[in-house]
Design a protein around this nucleic acid. Structure first.
Lengths: 168, 168
DNA sequence: CCGTTCTTTCAATAAATTTTGAAAATTCAG
DNA sequence: CTGAATTTTCAAAATTTATTGAAAGAACGG
């Protein structure tokens, strides 16, 4: 397989993959393109490679920068802005976990905290089922939260090393 | 907060949550409703509680059954089909991980295997960046794959117990 | 400053996804 | 079997989400 073809395949698949992970297709494709590009690209490069509009590139690049997956770089002698992606895949994973934890898990745990205070007779089976379910999810969520925190804070080598040992 | 209100809140939030996790809003809402219901419900119950059409309930229930998150139950003396959700949240998490691993991670790893065979001079920095990126993602993916396999196969107590100890 | 280049915004449009509901298929009791 | 009850299907409609592109805004060199 030729490089150009492989690149296209990778970008297409990473884009599809992204949609399953709370990242939109184009954002994931731009990310993919930058991941496999040796040098920083500017907006026009990205527009051309992915056949998308300037506005689209701009918005999604900004979103990637928000996630800290991409950063602006200054290329000496160039007026335009250039962009590169964080290439260390473990760091990428940690950034994604961190962001999604903040956006999804944390608010859910906060809500569950409120919901467990439901009024009513704890003997009533409907009340009981509700509070039991909420409590169960909360316990699980807190566990996950703790585990992800360790992952986000850990440095790669420690994390991989420990998990390797742990999982035989 | 009253039970009815709390239920609605829980269902709405679980639905929104679901959309971030590759599950569609209605499917997640039906799941939520069944999670907090003490008794099995039939299609009409669900239509009424969530204000959605029969076709919608039917399709999403079927999908939930595919994921093994919901099962049909026979209620003696009733002609209609009834449904309950798996209530053990750890089992639920394992079922979701299992399904998503199959649908997303496994195909991605297969693709990366092909992409690392790209032709061309390994000294060329563009080829090198591509193969390095692909190899890095592949290594990461295999790690995740192994870890998730352990999780899927493990029984809850072992898993929680071990993780608790591991993460202090 | 001024004109040019580049970036950002956002209303309009397009595309993708979800939902409906009525018709077809199936199931089941008598 | 028969016909009523129930489930399933799926094309059309509604809704949601993503994309465009032109106009406004910033930044910069001279």
């Amino acid at each position: 397989m030729k490089l150009a073809e492989a690149k296209l395949q990778f970008i297409a698949s990473w884009g599809a993959f992204g949609t399953h992970w709370g990242i939109n297709r184009t954002m994931a494709q731009i990310h993919a393109l930058l991941l496999v590009s040796a040098d920083p690209l500017n907006q026009d490069d990205i527009m051309e490679e992915l056949n998308i509009s300037r506005g689209n590139v701009n918005m999604n690049i900004r979103e990637l920068i928000d996630w800290a997956l991409v950063e602006r770089v200054i290329v000496p002698g160039e007026r335009k802005e250039f962009f590169t992606a964080e290439k260390d895949i473990w760091k990428v994973a940690r950034l994604i976990v961190k962001e999604r934890k903040k956006r999804e898990l944390d608010p859910m745990l906060k809500l569950l905290d409120q919901l467990k205070e439901v009024e009513g007779d704890k003997k009533d089976k409907h009340v009981k089922q509700f509070t039991d379910t909420v409590a169960g999810i909360k316990r699980f969520g807190e566990q996950a939260d703790k585990m992800l925190d360790v992952m986000v804070k850990a440095d790669e080598n420690w994390f991989v090393g420990s998990l390797m040992k742990f999982f035989k």
